[in-house]
Design a protein around this nucleic acid. Sequence first.
DNA 1: AGAGAAATTGCAGACACTGCAATCTTGCAT
DNA 2: ATGCAAGATTGCAGTGTCTGCAATTTCTCT
Lengths: 200, 200
Amino acid sequence: MNPAPGLRERKKLKTRQRIEATALKLFDAHGFDGTTVEAIADAAEISPRTFFHYFGTKEDVVLADYASRLERIVDQLQQQPASEPPWAALRASFLVVAADYDAERDSLIRRFSVIAATPSVYARSLQLQAGWEDAVAAALAERMSCRSSELQPRLLASCALSVIRSSLQHWIFTGQESSLPSLVETGFDQLAAGFEKLSK
Amino acid sequence: MNPAPGLRERKKLKTRQRIEATALKLFDAHGFDGTTVEAIADAAEISPRTFFHYFGTKEDVVLADYASRLERIVDQLQQQPASEPPWAALRASFLVVAADYDAERDSLIRRFSVIAATPSVYARSLQLQAGWEDAVAAALAERMSCRSSELQPRLLASCALSVIRSSLQHWIFTGQESSLPSLVETGFDQLAAGFEKLSK
DNA sequence: AGAGAAATTGCAGACACTGCAATCTTGCAT
DNA sequence: ATGCAAGATTGCAGTGTCTGCAATTTCTCT
């Protein structure tokens, strides 16, 4: 399907990207709340109704990349050799994803400014991330051969995502002075070593 | 203000609680999405417009207890002696909160079933929890005398909340077979000890 | 070329939420 | 007690997101 997806598919993808690009431009210019779906539809030359065939909510335009991001994480995690212990596997997987982020930094920062400025988008992004947590916990449970409802895989997944979130926030906030992968690396190592020193 | 809050205040509180109770009952009966604000207002004998004077969104009725919960966390954290190292202080504070949860388990479970079943409520709850994370990170930064934008306090706060979230989820899912405080305790100890064993 | 599938559109409507202005209730000072 | 000021409640009109439905257009495949 990669070489010849057919005109239909190609057109659909192009429309999707056009909507996304137009919307982000409008959000930059007038803010998220100051931009109506109608305005986006007009600018992207589609009907308002069609907009909702491409995106479930206005929020989802900003977070369009989240789905592929999750796919990447889980994919990486499953590609780690089974012999690799859980935390090491998480570490390796998330470093790859951090490198992805690093590469797309411009697009990322653009989206981030909308996320940070708009509560409803922020809420939606957290919700999607919670979905990542579930997926990661499930993949981890399989690897550790236990149920994903166990405390262990959940906690590991949750903490791994904490590392990413904290690192990202710090990275954005400081104007990317240190590289994202190195921040993530630090976080993972810190959790591997434990908070013992900070406990007594 | 505690002994004599005045008629006005008392009445207001009662109305607020009436709205909350009525709404939760309706959510139980017809689901969150199956219950309109109008229906809640009717049942609580107020006008729909008044509903929005008490709660910013329909979601917020389910999460009405979140504000006081945050207050409690930060309060506990600040009451911990300054000599206490950060992770130990977090551990102690969150254990208190876990005990709170444990005590209100019925109300909690009721709310949880709505949260779990309704994406928009879930999203809102995550957003509020992110606010907790900010507050905890700030309190922690003060205690560690660094800025709250530093990676360290953010990561600690984030992980502490990961422990609570994971524990709560496990606790609810397993039908509260082990006590919440003990789960939280386990989680904190595990993070103190570190994921070293799971790394190599 | 034509049948069938998929995409686009318009329309009507449900619902959450907001600002504004009018009305009613409560607290307080005289 | 009475009247005034602040606060609470309400109705109303309006905006904007999102949905289902049915009609129409656009692609795909034979």
